[in-house]
């Protein structure tokens, strides 16, 4: 193959030299200017809890919708001293978690862990770990649709106005409709919250069981939506309240079972079909928590 003249290899312009990882790319893949741009968006997001900050999302080597927002946020926060944990559906070993972890291993060569307490930075899709997050941890959510009002109003130019003027009445209409139809609020995941008494925010598609964990958390919570080009955040110790009615309070229910592996009664469970007759088994979705409990 003929070498083209107009292609310049990244390594010629690398900022960070001399590390034993894939030399083709900068530390944690993104170039330093992009990281700077993303860090600025993150800082702005932390200053205005729950507000969606537009950022110039980059094309990543994994598809949009597969965590590109989270990956960009993680890449921008990562330092060589960090210990990274990646989970998808609560588990460290699901295909997408494995794939993203390998991506960071390859591009940054940092330490990874499956143990929640040992991680300094955790990227997640769809769950918050059962082990409480602690001070100095950064918790990054992958977000598909950052706009909680999108189902009411698809136009971004309109939803921006609704947020800035706190016109949130219509948000409760959906909850009202649920109750009048079925006797309770039907939203089971991506259950909208109000952050710091100001912005209505989409918590990403975590089950509503996890919503209370966001409230007053000592960790920094960051949300990245790559395709939709938005970053938002919850600073440590911030009030996060799930929307509800006074007489129909928020109810973070889960399956009424205990984990068949570790016996835990108050963790979120995956349902597994174990035979052709459709018999079911329930196990913790947080694999790290389940392992620790079982081994105790």
């Amino acid at each position: 193959m003929r070498k083209t003249n107009n292609v310049i290899k990244i390594k010629d312009f690398k900022v960070d030299k001399g590390l034993p990882f894939d030399q083709e790319y900068n530390f944690a893949y993104l170039d330093e200017n992009t990281k700077k741009m993303i860090r600025r968006a993150i800082i702005k997001a932390l200053c205005i809890p729950g507000y969606q900050v537009p950022f110039a999302s980059r094309e990543m080597p994994m598809p949009y919708g597969w965590g590109t927002g989270g990956v960009q946020v993680t890449a921008s926060c990562l330092t060589k001293r960090d210990t990274l944990k990646i989970i998808d559906q609560g588990a460290d070993d699901t295909t997408n978690a494995v794939s993203i972890r390998n991506f960071f291993k390859k591009t940054s060569n940092i330490k990874t862990t499956e143990i929640t307490e040992k991680a300094t930075l955790i990227q997640t899709r769809h769950r918050i770990p059962e082990t409480p997050l602690k001070k100095k941890q950064i918790f990054v959510y992958q977000v598909p649709i950052p706009e909680p009002l999108a189902f009411l109003e698809p136009k971004v130019s309109e939803t921006i106005k609704m947020h800035s003027l706190s016109e949130y009445g219509a948000m409760h209409v959906k909850l009202y409709e649920d109750i009048s139809k079925n006797g309770h609020i039907e939203t089971a995941y991506a259950y909208p919250v109000k952050t710091n008494d100001r912005y209505i925010m989409d918590p990403s598609p975590i089950p509503k069981f996890d919503n209370p964990k966001m409230n007053n958390s000592p960790a920094i919570q960051l949300f990245g939506a790559g395709r939709e080009q938005r970053i938002y955040a919850i600073p440590p110790y911030t009030k996060v309240k799930s929307l509800d009615f006074e007489d129909y309070p928020f109810d973070p229910f889960k399956a009424e079972h205990a984990c068949d592996i570790c016996g835990s009664k108050n963790t979120y469970l995956d349902e597994i079909i174990v035979d052709d007759a459709g018999n079911k088994s329930f196990i913790c979705s947080d694999t790290d928590f389940c392992n620790k409990r079982k081994n105790k």
Binding site: P63, Y64, G65, W66, T68, D88, Q89, G90, T94, T95, N96, R125, H126, R127, P144, E186, A188, Y189, A190, P205, I206, P207, K208, F209, R227, F253, K254, A255, Y268, L269, D270, E271, S285
Partner: peptide
């Protein structure tokens, strides 16, 4: 295509919450 194809990713958790509901 990315957002469409992400439907193939595991959604055990959200599906579980809908199942319960």
């Amino acid at each position: 295509t990315g957002f469409l194809e992400h439907l193939k990713l595991p959604h055990y958790v959200d599906f579980q919450s809908e199942l319960e509901l």
